[in-house]
Design a protein around this nucleic acid. Structure first.
Lengths: 253, 253
DNA sequence: CGTTTGATTGACACGAGTCAACACCAGTGG
DNA sequence: CCACTGGTGTTGACTCGTGTCAATCAAACG
């Protein structure tokens, strides 16, 4: 019933019904953003927090030379700038990869809610911890895995995260991401990324038609990539009932 | 007067005198660990939090093949496992790089203190946010900077962080870190790390005698590495009085 | 003294980057 | 309706940064 954002927080911490309703109410004010648009820039001092309800976005940093490194992908349910509740200014950019619908929640509101409902504050805190954990895994992935496993691992992570919000259907999910994005996320060049993807397809580990990715044998891909979902600290153990969750996700607009 | 850990939290959030005293009291129970020892392993479920008071440590993850990636360096004042207040189990290892003195603070105590002194909870939260921010910068550094700038950037970060706790004296600081560690942190091989270090020395950017690193012209090194301290979200702007801070640090055992 | 750990070298191999075309498609506008 | 455009994917040829292997050295240590 609640929106993806609230449901995700719920999966972290057991929110009281009152807290859920308050959050739901607070995140009612939404806004859409075109794909390719910049949502937040380095140095920004937003006065409200943003949660993604629909669409894909990403954090990234840009080097003087123009090189870009994607730091994290932001999926429906993710809190974009929770850290801005306390920090002075953004230390990275956030851009929409596809058209996005985001909820705007004023910092005041969020802070007030956190005091009224301690579970909310804890959920936000937890969210920050998980994002940190994911970032650490990315350091490992980009630092010590060869290109093919690196990209495979990234795809596994996306698959896992999308599954938990019911966006994977029949082993297939939409990836509104260009090969350039994939390259910038894994620290490779576009050309090499292209070749690696071809190899993954030839090997039968993935199937790509346009922006639709099919992973017929997830276990095989995960084994190849050395993927273990522990670092995502998801509430549900690996063996959850994806059906039920998916149904829930579909149900809420 | 307070210990490094408390002082660092203070630099994040303005703790009340009562909070400072409570924290100081809570972190009075210390313990020493030999260099090279493992402090925490993946899967551990510690019942107390650990703060480093003296010595160097690092977070790292290990791949099945044996490859190791260092995720972060832990310096005096750093909270090692703040995330374990909420998470089920460690998703990475922590090892001491040099003999360390660490404070053990039971989770119960820390949680109780957080409720009694809201500023403490906020300081811990902030600490998690900063660690996340640092991790994101590492992703950029290891993903998009060439080997020489990568290592230079790492050295800049260490210099900056050590300066803020008064461990840099006369442009020189102790680096109890082997080239293997440096390699594992920057995602390079030991051999190449060695050659890069030689180049940095030849260029006059750094001076290495044993484990003592001297950076005579910090501005030059920072410029070369493209280092900007913003991501460390340090309270003090770049132009602080290192003299005073250093004196403080020396004073407190 | 042997032993061990860390630093250093050289030779060589290979993964990944770069450059430059070209193909394909969706818009877009004349 | 078709030419033109820009973005994305795909290729090939070539270069170059890093990794690997193996040997040597230096310092620390029992």
């Amino acid at each position: 019933m609640a929106n993806v954002f609230v449901r995700k927080l719920q999966s972290f911490v057991n929110l009281t019904p009152a807290a859920v309703e308050a959050l739901e109410h607070a995140s009612a004010c939404t806004r859409t953003i075109d794909g390719g648009q910049v949502m937040l820039s380095e140095g920004d001092q937003p006065r409200s927090a943003h949660a993604i309800l629909e669409g894909f976005a990403c954090r990234y940093k840009v080097l003087p030379g123009g090189a870009r490194q994607i730091i994290d992908f932001l999926l429906p349910g993710d809190l974009v700038d929770g850290h801005m509740l306390f920090m002075a200014q953004m230390d990275h950019d956030v851009g929409a990869l596809s058209p996005c619908r985001v909820a705007d929640i004023p910092h005041n509101t969020l802070l007030t809610l956190s005091e009224a409902h301690p579970t909310i504050g804890r959920a936000l805190w937890w969210s920050a911890l998980v994002q940190g954990s994911v970032a650490r895994e990315w350091i490992l992935n980009n630092g010590r895995r060869p290109a093919d496993k690196r990209i495979a691992h990234l795809l596994c992570e996306l698959c896992f995260r999308l599954t938990s919000i019911g966006l994977v259907e029949d082993h297939r999910y939409k990836l509104p991401i260009t090969q350039t994005d994939l390259a910038d996320a894994s620290g490779l060049s576009v050309v090499h990324t292209n070749r690696v993807l071809q190899k993954l397809r030839r090997t039968g580990l993935i199937m790509l038609e346009g922006s639709n990715l099919t992973v017929s044998d997830l276990a095989k891909l995960e084994h190849f990539a050395g993927f273990e979902s522990g670092y995502l600290h998801s509430a549900e153990p690996t063996q959850s009932e994806p059906g039920e969750r998916a149904a829930q996700a579909q149900g809420s607009r």
